[in-house]
Design a protein around this nucleic acid. Structure first.
Lengths: 153, 153
DNA sequence: TGGTTTATGTCAGGACTTTGACATAGGAGA
DNA sequence: TCTCCTATGTCAAAGTCCTGACATAAACCA
């Protein structure tokens, strides 16, 4: 076999299901599925929940900033924001006197709604975290970051 | 700090972006994005590519089996299969004499198409794999599996 | 044998997301 | 100043994916 770009010491796995990408996708799919199930009881989608969580920690984020934080496009986040706005969970000014970015904020009901949904999501995250040996958690987080940076860097 | 009845020894991260779920999603999003970009040149979507790859290694898989392997629903995989069938990359019998599962197979063109797209995808997977220290790769794969099993198990 | 359970393929509808495009606002540099 | 570049918000259209539902087929068991 012709090896154009040899960058690894280990031979590439023959079975696709043994490759890192497949395993990553499997874990992410399991997480997505579990979160979907849990959040449905609260009438939230995963991007909606992510948006609320981001706004709770960094109030005033714009649509584009939220989109990057939730790993979706601006257009998708725009739809998400409109849904949250219609549900009364966030507020966004119609205009701004400087720039185009419209800062979003949680309403009181948004805070309450997030608080109730958060426990369910945190339980999932914790179940996942507990599944990996604690001594490796920090390295696992670092590896995930390296993987992400290697791809979009 | 008051720890209540949490199952972990480490205090839960206050910042959502520090939690395992967020990092996992970030890495998966980066992978998905990179694969989308690469596969577009070959006229394939990620599920379509995954389907071809699975069929190459295990010919005769049914729609439902492919759906599980690609982490989508049967309905979604049905659409994928129809697209691949229309493109002449796979074949599927209209009927079967035993059971309902219709075994799918790659056509010659399907094999060629997959072979050309595969190098691009493998390059991405390899770039990601090379980003993690080699001595930790096996543990990383095992941890991803544990995470997935902890969630859908 | 007959009933139940499980698994599969399919249809219809809706929800979500993306690509592509356009106009606007601010900053950087000639 | 003027132009170019980047970033943002938004619209339209298409594609993708999912939930819910139904019918069929095999297996399992009393």
């Amino acid at each position: 076999m012709h090896e154009g770009t040899l960058s690894s010491h280990t031979p590439p796995a023959a079975d696709v299901t043994e490759r890192l990408g497949y395993r990553l996708k499997r874990a992410a799919a399991a997480l997505r599925s579990a979160m979907d199930r849990a959040l449905r009881e609260y009438g939230l989608t995963v991007p909606q929940y992510a948006c609320l969580e981001l706004l709770d920690q960094r109030p005033g984020l714009s649509n584009a900033e939220l989109a990057r934080g939730a790993f979706v496009t601006r257009q998708s986040m725009n739809v998400v924001l409109r849904g949250l706005q219609d549900a009364g969970l966030i507020t966004r000014p119609a205009t701004t006197d400087h720039g185009r970015a419209l800062p979003a904020h949680l309403t009181e009901e948004g805070h309450r709604h997030l608080a109730s949904a958060r426990s369910a999501v945190y339980a999932i995250d914790q179940r996942m975290t507990d599944a990996v040996p604690e001594r490796r958690l920090a390295e696992l987080l670092a590896d995930l970051d390296r993987m992400a940076e290697a791809l979009d860097g």
